[in-house]
Amino acid sequence: MDDPQRMDRRQAVKWMLAASATVSILQLPTLGGGPARSGYGTDPNLLEVYKPGDFWPLTFSKEQRRSVAALCDVILPADERSPSATGLKVPDFIDEWISAPYPRQQADAKVVLPGLEWLDAEAARRFHAPFADLSEAQKNKICDDLCSVQKAGRGFERAAQFFAKFRELAMGGFYSTPEGMKDIQYLGNVPLAKFDGPPPEVVAYLKLP
């Protein structure tokens, strides 16, 4: 439980809720929408410090965490502009996300968990080892077959959907960290005295009137 590599639970929950809150203004109405499911209790109080498992249990087993970490870093490796996904503790984010009892997160869990199982089975079938123990080339070989929903070959359709969902969550976690925001140059969420609209270089670039 006290793994120093793991993120503070409160941080992970805040991160998850922040990332889900910023999905898009446009999608907001549908987020909380739909018919009421049977209750999931009260939402966490973000002013309190929680320990892991305090209000909903986490999901990933040790083995699953290894697969998740390995897949995260295949998808988002370190490069000159930003660290790797595990460097930003994205696996913690995904664990928190799929463990949350809300309808959207539960639907995602139903894609991610069987997908991880499939991933290790596929790694064993092809290379006789769990995904996390494969070489980079071996991992890439598997991911090459999964990384496009449109181009996925026969028998890989569901796996490709898992990959797309996993990538969406990994990217959502990654790019909602300060490092991720810096990487894609999100410059907002800093207080300003006034909002001036696009600066001259943007006006020029877009040939705005």
Partner: peptide, 26 residues
Amino acid sequence: GREMPGVGTFEDLDDLTGGGYGKKLK
């Protein structure tokens, strides 16, 4: 535009790039 990124910001990437991962994805 350049709204605060979160889950869903890149959900349409597949449509655009035909999928991908790794340094190219970044």
